[in-house]
Design a protein around this nucleic acid. Structure first.
Lengths: 354, 354
DNA sequence: AACCACTACTAAAACCTTTTAGTGCACTGT
DNA sequence: ACAGTGCACTAAAAGGTTTTAGTAGTGGTT
């Protein structure tokens, strides 16, 4: 391992000088060009890499650029969201790579909370000054109390959860309303709902939005079934089967699912039952996952700018880390309905164009 | 921040004693039960959390239990693989949580290598003794030289790449043969191929397997088209359009894609062209991604035990970290064909059962 | 000649933990 | 009485970096 002292020896100077040159810190200290070059060259030749442990020990993480993404409940279905969050965070870091000198992109940390169902372990992460910023996603309602009580030593941004810390969110009620209103506008009068057993805050909001629209339209609350288990698609498949086995007159002509994975599970069930989408039952999801546009039929869904949100969350963290921002920030992102072929008017009144 | 010395004061003892008690290290040192209890209680009361930086500075990471998952080329499509790898790694850590005392699950680190296209940044990660084990995935052929040249200070396991380090792999040629042979057995005589522009080692192997089968069967090499860009589904969609626009007599009756995301892109193109799957064109993928079973038609694909592989890789790392194993280990995992409805005999000779 | 300002550089402390090499004490056996 | 043994505990050094407070040397003003 190459240390500062090794470079100092080779460049015939002191450890202090080397540290200043390599960390290109200003201080009130001047270094001649000759010395600077000598140090730089020696470092290059020896292949110096700073010891992060020592650096962080010195000043409790304040200089070390590391952002952690904590995923509270790594349930299968939710993991697919990670991809987009990571992509967004990376995009931001990439764009600012000069500024933040981030040779390292994102560090994401998975906190395993299967048995506890709580984020308690975070304490063990935050205290030891491991990192400089924390992006938390997938928190469940039970985590709320704990998360709110945190007085972290580093800035925190929550993904899709309102909090007294910073957050990036979408208006979940609006999402639910957009999807449901779309179905109402198409003429549906019995609109069912499929949601997962461990609903996140965002999903609860979507359900409220769904209820709002139905009440305002004076429509009956359609069957609401819960998708059980960790595998959302499978849970929704079985949930939809329960819906389908009810008597035909009570069967909804459309279902709203609180995310896209649930939607494809439900769609599979509908097809396996021998019914057509959207002619017999229309389906609308949320999230606009990667596969939504390629599914058959392509899924009507509410598009969430997940990557943009993650990029913004990362920027928030960076700003807070760099003291540019001090107060918690909340930002809500716009969403929009993407109409594809899984939704259409009831009773196949109008055949969808291929 | 609570330090060892704070606990020592409160418990009326020395820093050394506290360190020994809290780290429950044996040494050749004995601690009376009274002292031990006093220390434990003081630590509890003060809410002690060890400073990882100091700990690691002391002995270059050897005690600190952290495994890093490095994803070399975080292209959109490949990110979806992460979910399953993370899930597998977590399962293993969870199963061994007593043994490894891992309050922290997995730390996964995304190395951003967009512009370099190389894993060079890993150097900046390995040298500073950040962690104790490294699980690398998504390396591209260009990374080979660098990865092979690594003489890491920590154990390394590669995912889906043969190497002089340890690895967990599947037999890519076998994967390609399974899929292609299935199509040949169904009676297809023109079998096309869709593969991504930045093919991984595993994917190249699958392509070889495909070639093998066609040659052995004396069949012509079908059209081989490359899916361009980071979005595999989209790339495959356009690639498939190119295939479809060739004259009908040269059009394949089946296509093999080197992963499932490519498959759904191709399927979308086939349907949009007004053709049916599998009657006009059969499709077979690889990976058995989550959505494969729920797609319409459900996708025939080669199932890879990704989670098991990740769990095994994690166990390998743990064993190497704990010195139970010293030599590199290679392990190849069995795969199997999952026949669903996207594949069938050519010319719709036999209608698939719904 | 005394003082100041400025440049270029450095010694040493601090950050917190782990581990080696002890110390002091109470017994035991001769 | 004295070496030997085992127990319970501790002082101090080490690990690599950053940063404060300082030194030495030079040139320029009063």
């Amino acid at each position: 391992m190459v240390r500062l002292v090794d470079i100092a020896k080779r460049a015939n100077t002191s450890v202090t000088t080397v540290s200043i040159v390599l960390g290109n810190r200003p201080y009130n200290v001047m270094i001649s060009d000759a010395t600077r070059q000598a140090v730089l060259q020696a470092a290059q030749e020896l292949g110096y890499a700073p010891d992060m442990a020592a650096r962080r020990l010195r000043h409790h993480g304040s200089d070390h650029r590391t952002i952690v993404l904590a995923i509270a409940h790594p349930i299968d279905g939710r993991l697919s969201l990670i991809s987009r969050i990571v992509a967004g965070a990376q995009r931001q870091l990439h764009a600012m790579r000069e500024e933040v000198q981030a040779s390292i992109g994102v560090i994401q940390l998975i906190v395993e909370t299967y048995e506890l169902g709580q984020l308690q372990q975070l304490r063990g992460l935050i205290e030891p000054y491991w990192f400089n910023g924390l992006l938390i996603t997938n928190t469940s309602p039970e985590d709320d109390e704990y998360v709110e009580g945190l007085t972290p030593s580093v800035p925190i941004v929550l993904f899709q959860r309102e909090t007294r810390h910073s957050s990036v969110t979408t208006d979940g009620e609006h999402v639910g309303r957009l999807a449901t209103q779309h179905l109402v506008d198409l003429g549906h009068r019995r609109i069912g709902l499929i949601y997962p057993d461990a609903a996140s805050q965002a999903q609860e909001q979507r359900i409220r939005g769904y209820h709002n629209v139905l009440q305002q339209a004076g429509l009956p609350l359609g069957p609401e079934v819960v998708a059980l288990g960790r595998n959302w698609a499978e849970g929704a498949y079985m949930a939809m089967q329960r819906v389908l086995s009810s008597i035909a007159s009570e069967r909804p002509t459309a279902v709203f699912t609180t995310n896209d994975l649930l939607a494809i599970g439900a769609m599979r069930a509908i097809r396996d039952w021998g019914l057509r989408i959207p002619e017999h039952i229309a389906v609308v999801g949320c999230d606009d996952a990667e596969f939504a546009a390629y599914h058959d039929p392509p899924l009507t869904t509410v598009h969430l700018p997940i990557e943009d949100m993650a990029a913004r969350a990362t920027l928030m963290l960076l700003d807070m880390i760099r003291q540019r921002a001090r107060v918690p920030m909340q930002e809500s992102f716009p969403v929009h309905l993407v109409i594809r072929r899984s939704s259409g008017p009831p009773n196949g009144a109008e055949e969808p164009t291929l």
